[in-house]
């Protein structure tokens, strides 16, 4: 918390308030138990899931990801991962809305190629338009391009989520100046989505003024995912507080911290 006199610092998304600014994915974990423990340690309240074919003819008691995500505790954010065109992205969102009993918050991503997983921004803009018209609340994965970010906001996306670096790369924030420009232009929450590698990357995103960070691999692929989830939580909090505190101006030369007066010798 910043100071005792200020209002609690909350992230508002689609009319709901969240105390955590860390959003996490649920992919790539060893098993469901590890997924649950990592989410718990991260403190995240918004959790992404993917939508895939149901396995047919398999064990009926097979656990499902939604079983470990009670809806009274977590906001489920279904994604369109794996979609490379407008039609499949829109179909995926409609299936997700049905799956989640009309819950209309989605994470839109329309990918451009498998090597980079960079967004196809033209298709992303079209899909966003269609989904907003269809009543969805769209959080959209996009490039770190301030112009595209502005257009996605104009279409009516409720949050714009520029990448820090390619999905799953862990390269950190490759273009902090663009992220800052996107934040400065925005009237909707800006969340860094993808590319964060470690806690300091998350802190940097928050220090740039982002409203939150969405990550998956940085936690799931750590040697100890539970400990990294906790580190990310702290990185997000530290970065946010530093942003709110307002950092000192950097100076080229030194500035002594101890007084020059009262020295008992001649300097």
């Amino acid at each position: 918390m910043p100071t005792e006199t200020t209002a609690p610092d909350r992230l508002t998304l689609a009319g709901r308030e969240y105390s955590s600014r860390l959003l996490v994915g649920t992919g790539k974990y060893k098993d469901m138990a590890e997924t649950a423990r990592a989410i718990e340690a991260s403190g995240a309240e918004i959790v992404t899931v993917a939508v895939r074919r149901t396995n047919l003819g398999q064990t009926p008691g097979e656990p499902n990801i939604l079983d470990i995500l009670p809806p009274e505790r977590y906001t489920i954010l279904p994604n369109t991962a794996g979609c490379y065109d407008v039609e499949t992205a829109v179909r995926t969102c409609r299936l997700a809305r049905e799956l989640l009993d009309g819950h209309n918050l989605v994470k839109l991503e329309v990918l451009g190629d498998e090597k980079t997983l960079f967004p196809d921004v033209i298709a992303t803009l079209k899909a966003a338009e269609e989904l907003v018209k269809d009543g969805f609340q769209v959080m959209v994965y996009t490039n770190d391009d301030p112009i595209v970010a502005r257009q996605l906001e104009e279409i009516g996306c409720i949050a714009v989520m520029p990448l820090a670096a390619p999905i799953g790369s862990g390269l950190g924030i490759r273009n902090p100046l663009n992220i800052r420009t996107i934040v400065e232009n925005a009237h909707v929450p800006i969340l860094v989505d993808a590319g964060v590698g470690t806690a300091s990357d998350a802190a940097v995103a928050m220090e740039l003024g982002c409203d939150g960070v969405l990550m998956n691999t940085a936690i799931a692929a750590a040697r100890d995912p539970i400990l990294m989830a906790s580190a990310m939580r702290k990185g997000i909090e530290a970065g946010r507080e530093a942003y709110l505190a307002g950092r000192m101006a950097p100076k080229r030369f030194a500035s002594a911290s101890s007084p020059m007066e009262g020295l008992f010798f001649q300097p």
Binding site: G25, V49, A50, V51, R53, T54, N79
Partner: peptide
């Protein structure tokens, strides 16, 4: 929609997709 499952009849060669949620980022 689930509410229409009882009345929705299938025809030959219909392509049915049954999906669920899985872990993902």
């Amino acid at each position: 929609p689930r509410s229409r499952f009882p009345e929705r009849r299938l025809a030959p060669h219909d392509q049915v997709e049954i999906i669920h949620a899985v872990g993902g980022g």
